[in-house]
Design a binder for these strands. Structure first.
Lengths: 184, 184, 184, 184
DNA sequence: CATGAATGAGTATTCATTCAT
DNA sequence: AATGAATGAATACTCATTCAT
């Protein structure tokens, strides 16, 4: 059973992300990824130059979505309303397909930090913060703005020991996140 | 030149925590720890049975502090005031010597998760949450309570790209954390 | 210079058996095997999952020959004649390619005992004994039957300090072995 | 609780032999011996210069008993009767305290071979054979003589999968062994 | 588009041994 | 008579990577 052109490439990305998010970057070996897909390790090297490149390719996706969001933000006046809209849009991104990516980034800092593209992601987060608060805002409010983003990132993880419905949880997380944006 | 009794053991723990927090558990090899201390790898094995046991020993310290805090909490009525006091006390723990431990735990989830004692730590967090909110509380407030703890954990990390003074930051983080505990 | 397909695998088995028989399982390191073949240790791991698996693969061969012999035995009435034929056939196996395997098994009991497949081999020997003597036979004759097999196993070893020709020795060993099978 | 003078030395020998016979020489570490006796590894080094020396000391005991037996043999005319008496006396040695030693020697050839004193033991066996058969005896009878000794060595081991009483087994083994000594 | 075979550099761990106290 | 602390050399094994086919 042959695959459609570069179906394999997509499969590699999918499985890799799954495993990286679940077990961490270091603990996931190329052998493991290859075995899950029932191809050889060498096949991975046909599609990606290195292990790092697989991750870089995944980062790029997320990066693109973040960039698009920032593009939108650049066209907005930073008001409480537009800021809340920003949070809402970001929630949509990371509660959708970006969820696993996020988990990976959040729970594998030391690895992500020195991976190609890891620095960019951090810069992106910094840009988010800059849109969400004025430079002169009080320190607690600056923390709150960042916490707003983090709330979206972490809720799923922080509440994993409860048995609350995933959708309810996401809605509540968004509510809390919006609430952390200063009213002016 | 021999060291004082079990000085070495303490040094191993210190250096190990430093490196684990900085580079992650997997990326830190016993060779690296040994080299920093100018002893052989075998010396580490004289003091600890496995690499995992070094971490377990570090976890144990944190675990003990958390346990002490919970002991105190068990003697309290859960009121907004006592809950805030709880957060204050926890802040003292993790902004002190527990800071590196926290960073390690937060940024190396996949590794920590299957390390000896890792599960216990998570259970502890769960107990914290139980003291901080009533079961019937609204979902957003439940999230806020957990976020309160997370604020203390993450502020240093979330703000690392700014150049704000460490102490100011801790104070502001505590303020935000306290503010996330429901009023009534 | 690459080798023919799976030539290497066969070479590993050959050299490993040689060394295991000569120096014992524990004393033979994978480094040593690799060096003799002028490949890296990692190459061994390409062909076998573990050191134990190399042995297991060797055991399997011997196991197969033993099984074939037992298959034949199952089709026979156990008479003095068929029993002697059994001993003759067994002699052929172990005086041929099985010789080194035998030496290894005989002289490395503690190691063999807990290797994958080691238990099976022992069970096989037990089955041999069952074909060679009736359950009600006198104890000395039961011992003799087992000794018959052992004679074939051990003669080479027990006589190694003499300078008798190998073939003469094998013939004499067979004669002694056959003589130990009760006449009825 | 202190030990009597050099009680410890004896204990080390006892435990070491036990473990060497059970698990083999290589697989038995000094740590294991020390732990069983609840002393440190360094304590072993107070009593023996090396691991090999522990074995050498055990060999020496067996060696002495063998030497005594040979001393007796040297004073005898080699007749069928005296040869049978020799076998009887040897049986007494190795079915008594020498049993574990024998098991060790038999099942750890590669290790024993290069241990201090291992060569001597082999030479002793050679001397046994020389007393038991004339040089001009037929090859099969030479094999039988050696097999006679081997019978005593191996019976316990070769019959371990049956549930026959140990004493009965030893008696039967002696009977078979005696029977292997040529009549005239 | 992919495989089979291999490598080099690394990892955690174990062991016999030493020595100052 | 024994310990606590340490070493140096080894071991089995894993991993990301390469390349001819």
């Amino acid at each position: 059973m042959t695959r459609r052109r570069s179906d394999t490439r997509e499969q590699i990305r999918r499985v890799a992300l799954e495993l990286f998010a679940e077990q961490g970057y270091e603990k996931t070996s190329l052998r493991e990824i290859a075995e899950r897909l029932d191809v050889t390790k060498a096949a991975l090297y046909y599609h990606f130059k290195t292990k790092e490149d697989i991750v870089a390719s995944l980062f790029a996706d997320f990066h693109a979505e973040a960039e698009e969001l920032l593009e939108w933000a650049r066209g907005q006046q930073p008001t409480p309303a537009s800021r809340r809209e920003f949070v809402r849009r970001y929630a949509e991104i990371i509660q959708g397909p970006g969820k696993e990516m996020l988990r990976f980034m959040q729970q594998n800092e030391p690895a992500v930090r020195d991976l190609k593209g890891g620095a960019d992601l951090r810069a992106r987060m910094q840009s988010f913060a800059e849109f969400l608060v004025d430079k002169e805002t009080s320190l607690p409010d600056q923390i709150r703005a960042r916490l707003s983003i983090l709330t979206l990132h972490m809720t799923h993880f922080a509440m994993r020991d409860t048995d609350i419905d995933e959708n309810e949880l996401q809605d509540a997380a968004l509510e809390v996140a919006l609430d952390l944006i200063p009213d002016e």
